[in-house]
Structure formats: C-alpha cells, structure tokens
Design a binder for these strands. Structure first.
Lengths: 216, 216
DNA sequence: ACAACATCGTTACAGATTTCACAATATCGA
DNA sequence: TCGATATTGTGAAATCTGTAACGATGTTGT
C-alpha cells in the first residue's frame, strides 16, 4: 500500500522477484542476498536493493533478505487486499494456452470467466474456467466485479470487445491482439505484441546486440 | 542498414509503425502526418519524428510522409537483405497459436520449422510449418541456417531446449517460458512474461494509473 | 568483548529516453 | 509570383531509469 508512484518497470521486476523467491522457497532456501536474486533475475544487485526501497522491506547485513518475509512484503505491495478476478475474452489456441498457464497459480488473481462466440464452448469448463457466450460478457463482468481482462480475440474484433469490457467496468486490459486499443484514460492497457517482439529479436539477433533486458 | 545503435524501444516502435502504415496503405491512404501516425500508435508526434531520424527517411512539410516510401525505408532498417528464418520449439496451445498468428504474414521473417517431443505431431504440417522431433533440432537448425527461435516449451524444459538452440547457432530467442534463460552474451533474449504482465495490469488497474505505454 | 567482514540502504551521479520549441521549408491559393 | 500556413527536422531541456559509491550495521569467530 502507500506509495502511489511505483514505476512500471519496478512493478514488473517485483513480480519477477516474487516468482523467483517462490522457487527458492520451494527448494528450502530461506535467505537470499541481493546479488543472488539479481543474478537470477538478470539485473544488477544495486537494482534489486533499489527496488526493495519501493517495497519498504529491509534485509539485514550479512544475512541478506528473508525469503518468506520478502515474498509477503512484495505481496503487500502488488496484491490487492481482497482477491482480484480476471476475465478472458477469446478462447482460441492462445486463450486456452493462457487459461492453462494461470490455472491455480495465484489465488489472489485468478481467471474466473471466459468468453467466446463459439456456442460449442459455451457452458463448458476449460482449465477450471467457466465459459460464457460473449453476449453475456457485460452482465457477468459487472456482477462479479471484474476489473481485469485478457483480450485474445482476433484483431478484427478486439476494439469492439474492449469497448464491451470497458463499459462493464474493466480498468486494466492485457491485450494480445495486434491492434492499439482506444480506451478511456483511466483504463490501463498493456500490449503483448508478438509480431513486434519477434521483429525485435530478429533485428538484434542479426546485429549481435548483447544481453537481454527488463521483463515485459 | 548503417546505424549500429538503434535503441530497443525505437526498433519496437518502428515495427509497430510499419504495421500501422500497411493498414493505412490497404485503406488507400498514401500520405500521413507525424501526428496521425502518433495517434494511431499511442505516442507523441515528436516521438514519431525522432524515430524517423533513426530510419533516415525524410518527409516533406505540408504533405507529411509518403506511406509506401516510409514502409520501404523502415523495412530497409528492420529487415535483413536475405529472408530470415525462425524456428519454434514447443507445439502446445501456445505454439500453435503463434504459428497461426505468423502464417504467411512476413515473407522476410517466417517460421519454417517447429519442434516437439510428441511423436504424433512429428511429420505433420501445422499452419504451413513442418513439424520435427525435438531430437532433430540441432541438425535442422544448423542446415537451414536458422538464427531466430521462439520458445514455447514448458518451463521445466526451457533451459535445456535453449541450450540446444544456442548450440545450433541461434542468436535471438523470443522466450515465452516463465524462466530466465542463461545464454552466452552474444545471444539476444526477449522475454514475453505473461504472468508478470498480468500482475502489472492488475496492479495499475487497481491504482487507476492512466494511459498505456510503449510496445513490447 | 571486540575486531573483521560482507552486506544493506541511500544518496549522488550518469546515461538513456522523451518532450519541447523553433527555424526551415514545401505547398496551396490568390 | 508571392504570402500564408501547417508541417518537418533537430538542438536543447527535462524527465525517467539504472549504476556506482560509501557510511551504517548485524554477524561471526576468537
């Protein structure tokens, strides 16, 4: 809580740190140094310590950070107090891959409803997610107070579905369609643009540009 | 060609501009102003003009940029002279979604081979892409001079497959596995981390942070 | 008890990226 | 032909982001 101004990049790195810390915890490791976490995340130790300032968690010299405590502190910043629910629109291959990906992962942020226009999918449960007809999107999203959505519909329908989501109260969209969505200024959109990313990779592979970069 | 130092972000935006310009061309529009392209891309006009400096293409006052000429100029920078080929490892839902996504899109950068360990898929052609067994990855990637790869295997196998790709000469990887790959410094890795991105969206949706941001 | 040491938190710095502002200029209409 | 005008290209300022450096501090071994 508190800080209203945590940067984009910092939030992304914190999310990554948390996942890495969970892995460490599963291995029974209960303490970690900034340089270890940094090396696992592909950033510098100074970066990790700087990010910790945003979290407000302090480690101790010599002993480093307590893994479980740090996981909890990052959770206090990243997670909402009550669980957040997400909707997914578009159950093609990509949509199904994503529901499988997130099934049972984070209880605080789960996909609870999926929408498609294929009547064959409606009424089924795919990867633990109920599937509804896209026409029922508005009422269901409103009823369940869903504020986060994942958009995996074809490009030609993306704007239209985004409009439905926004009208139903969604405030954040993870957009996989290769389209720039027009949304009101209070809606946050994150574009996962595979075509752009692949061209980036191809370009830098050719150039021999070294090293990768921050998450997202 | 020429410029060895075009930034990450600029390359991503140029790729986006090119796609938007192609859409404009399909609509029969042959001239565009920086502020129009900017608004379509979700950036400022100054940003567009600055990116054009990297491309080396000049528009003309009053008339703006010629859409076809600009597409060609961006292509001169982003595309390699000869076509580049890409490989895809992991034909689960995500892998199939991606092959469908790129099928027949950019002749200069096509997925020409896919790999999986499921014998049922081997020998088939999925979305115009030949499918091979993962054990044959090395020889085939080498033979076909493939330098770009898309990694859509489960997290537990990602590092191992990445090692195979690198050993076969791959210099750029688009990684969808929620794992930080260890690769030699001359290999470029771009991470598409869905879990991180979704948490980012959930966080900023809650915060009411305004506006979206650059591609990738 | 205490000295040696490796690590943390933080401030100051450096570099990268974006925005601003304005001179230069090509086109259009009279 | 020539003035009016909207746009471009680019140097300079501002902002954002990451890095380095260093005093403070908790732990360990003697």
């Amino acid at each position: 809580m508190s800080e209203g101004s945590v940067s984009d990049k910092t939030v992304a790195r914190l999310s990554l740190y948390r996942r890495l810390l969970s892995d460490l915890l599963n291995q029974g490791i209960r303490n970690v140094y900034s340089h270890q976490l940094a090396s696992a995340a592909g950033v510098t130790a100074a970066q990790v310590r700087r990010d910790m300032m945003a979290v407000g968690y302090s480690g101790t010299p010599v002993r480093g950070y307590s893994v479980p405590d740090l996981i909890e502190s990052i959770g206090n910043l990243l997670d909402s107090a009550q669980a957040q629910s997400a909707a997914l629109a578009g159950l093609g291959n990509l949509g199904r891959a994503i529901t499988a990906y997130f099934a049972g992962r984070r209880p605080k942020l789960a996909i609870v409803a999926a929408f498609d226009n294929d009547p064959y999918k409606v009424g089924r449960v795919i990867n633990e997610v109920e599937c509804f007809h896209i026409n029922d999107l508005g009422p269901i999203v409103e009823q369940r107070n869903i504020r986060v959505a994942i958009l995996t519909v074809p490009a030609s329908e993306a704007q239209q579905v985004a409009d439905m989501l926004v009208r139903a109260g969604v405030k954040g969209v993870l957009n996989f369609a290769p389209v720039r969505l027009r949304v009101p200024p209070d809606v946050y959109v994150e574009n996962m643009d595979m075509a752009v990313c692949l061209e980036k990779v191809a370009f830098f592979a050719r150039q021999g540009r070294t090293t990768a970069e921050a998450p997202s």
